[in-house]
Design a protein around this nucleic acid. Structure first.
Length: 262
DNA sequence: ATGGTGGTCCTACCA
């Protein structure tokens, strides 16, 4: 089984880049975030033609939105609402063989890392608290995979400078602790760090606001794939497609890819 | 300390 997670930053704008990724990687399942398209405008036919007859779409106008594209049929589809906002940040499917797959787009959280001064940061923290509660009800669930743009770089070497980013939203202690709490409570295994040592820099996002992202490589690892411990023995390979950031008209995020025996 | 770029949809808002 090959699984891809990618914040595509507009599905319609980057259909050709998705086609290229699919051609090169031939994934069985693709989880997308920030599709930025409402369901009525969703390019369903184009995605079916790419080889994905089974699709969960959960979009809204202009912002956010997630989708799961699959070669395998879904046994269930289940998009959840978070923070009572209806802002299309989650989808869940069950795949053949009872594999539970969750796709998240966690709020970015704005610029000021203080929930009293910044409602976007308050929303991010509330979203993480709800994730903790949600997974608590599913604690003994096996064969589960959780992917997405979590908008948090939890480890020291998930950012270009730990010291310089401690007060920058995505790497502040309060959000890192909440994410780590979710990971620990659910006994989740970080499937990418399973293959890449924690002291090695690893990024999946580079800001658009830099004329040359390669110049000093100021990235962050915001995109993640986690699995339940029963799947750890089945992990085969994980990669981050850093080269996609150099594609023409790229997303600011690149794809994270996991191979595992299913 | 500030502003830098890009997507959506057409005016700001979000990242």
């Amino acid at each position: 089984m090959r699984l891809v997670s990618w914040n595509i930053n507009s599905l319609r704008m980057r259909l050709d880049l998705l086609r290229r990724l699919v051609k090169e990687e031939q994934p069985d399942v693709v989880c997308l975030q920030e599709i930025k398209v409402q369901d009525s405008e969703f390019p369903e036919d184009a995605l079916k033609a790419m080889g994905y007859p089974h699709i969960l779409r959960h979009g809204m106008k202009s912002y956010n939105g997630v989708a799961i594209l699959s070669r395998l049929p879904f046994l269930a589809k289940d998009p959840q609402n978070w923070c009572d906002k209806g802002d299309s940040r989650h989808g869940r499917v069950v795949l053949g063989g009872d594999l539970d797959l969750q796709n998240f787009y966690v709020p970015a959280g704005g610029d000021v890392p203080d929930p009293k001064k910044n409602v976007k940061f308050a929303h991010k923290l509330q979203f993480l608290d709800e994730m903790q509660g949600y997974f608590k009800t599913r604690r003994n669930k096996k064969r589960s995979v959780m992917v997405g743009d979590l908008n948090i770089a939890p480890l020291e070497h998930d950012v270009w400078s730990h010291k310089q980013l401690l007060k920058i939203v995505s790497h502040t202690p309060v959000e890192v602790e909440k994410l780590t709490g979710i990971k620990t409570a659910g006994k989740w295994v970080d499937a990418v760090r399973h293959f890449v040592p924690e002291n090695e820099k690893l990024f999946s996002w580079w800001s658009y606001r830099s004329p040359d992202w390669t110049r000093n490589d100021r990235g962050r690892r915001l995109d993640h794939i986690w699995v339940t411990p029963d799947l750890q023995k089945d992990l085969k390979q994980a990669r981050i497609r850093r080269d996609m950031r150099s594609w023409k008209q790229p997303s600011d995020h690149v794809a994270v890819i996991l191979d595992f025996a299913d």
